[in-house]
Design a protein around this nucleic acid. Structure first.
Lengths: 207, 207
DNA sequence: GTCTATAGAATGATAGAC
DNA sequence: GTCTATCATTCTATAGAC
């Protein structure tokens, strides 16, 4: 499996920095020091390679989130406050994405790109595989009992939107605010996101 | 300019439904009933065609937004309430995107795709060309005088994130909430977004 | 099973005739 | 301004070596 792993790591490294379409199989196999045909042998196609990588990294990320949520529930003795639930949802990807460890940052940057540039297969997986979010829906419903299940889902969804936009459109915010916001500390970025989204959970449902 | 317009319209139609990489120059020129070489003659390359289309449609969209903002300011006699400013920002793209008129919907769907799949040139333009947002920063600052310029920018940025996610990840919300949210009326979707984001403008700045 | 070498089909781009 | 022919490069598939 040395070849397969070499391909996965090389591909992730390249996809973290360049668009999906801008990275050729020749780039990947050269970076991995394997033969051109190895990608199709081990994965079937370029798209299926991306899909497999996406699955692997998604599982890792969602495990991190689940651990943080469990820890918050344990610390609170059952029902953690809203902001702690949001923290478990948001902190892992933001921390990884801004990590000073390149290997960690690469994983997060690849994941963000995969969710956005999305081959049809990746997109379908991302749309339909929402099981890992159910535990957050449950936790949020406990923290905010006055909101309906649908209202919880909408607000959770929008919180993910803020997080994604914060990461993916970082340069745009810097340009708009003339560099007023400093991304060097991940905990700051996490706090901005939670400060903005938490109040949206306290409002009454839309008419 | 008949050929150039035919190419622009055909390309927009195809890009609205399919990924950038999945639409070939041969698809575009066949749809436009022009010669294969016409794209490179009139635009220089496939990427420059996307860039030109993106510029054209962005200008149109931002004109709509500016008109709504002016109208809100006129109606309020100077400083409209927060929600009316957010409405002017959010309503045009959401209305277009959900329009029952295919020609309108196509424009919006292309724009969303262009901002997301983003050729490097489109991405750079989207990141750096934020001038049209300055009038919204000004209007929001008037509506919420207790917030600093930086805080306004962050919250405006995050509001755009919610809007983009609401449009682009619609299916994911449907899956998560088991179809609880109905996108058939654009005004409803606009209200969901504003109901969630407006409270984020009332909180004190992050520590 | 694993890997290599190579060929096929499709793409974006371009040169030159009209 | 338009069109044909063609080029270099891409992903994919496969035959066959180890």
């Amino acid at each position: 499996m040395a070849t397969k792993d070499a391909i996965l790591n090389a591909a992730e490294r390249l996809f973290a920095n360049e668009r999906f379409a801008a990275v050729s199989l020749r780039d990947i196999t050269r970076e991995a020091s394997v033969n051109l045909a190895a990608v199709n042998y081990h994965f079937g196609s370029k798209e299926l390679l991306v899909l497999e990588l996406f699955k692997l990294r998604s599982i890792e990320l969602n495990r991190e989130r689940a651990q943080l949520l469990k820890a918050a529930e344990a610390a609170a003795g059952g029902t953690p406050p809203l902001r702690d639930v949001l923290f478990a949802l948001v902190a892992p990807p933001v921390r990884d994405w801004l990590s000073s460890d390149p290997a960690v940052s690469i994983k997060a940057r690849f994941l963000v790109r995969a969710m956005i540039e999305s081959t049809p297969e990746v997109r379908r997986l991302h749309e339909t595989e929402v099981g890992h979010l159910q535990q957050f829906v449950t936790a949020l419903a406990r923290s905010m009992p006055e909101l309906s299940h649908a209202d919880i889902c909408l607000r959770l969804h929008f919180t993910l939107g803020v997080m994604h936009y914060a990461m993916n459109e970082r340069k745009r915010l810097e340009m708009l605010s003339k560099g007023a916001w400093d991304y060097s500390n991940p905990e700051d970025v996490i706090a901005w996101i939670i400060d903005f989204t938490a109040p949206g959970f306290s409002t009454s449902p839309a008419s």
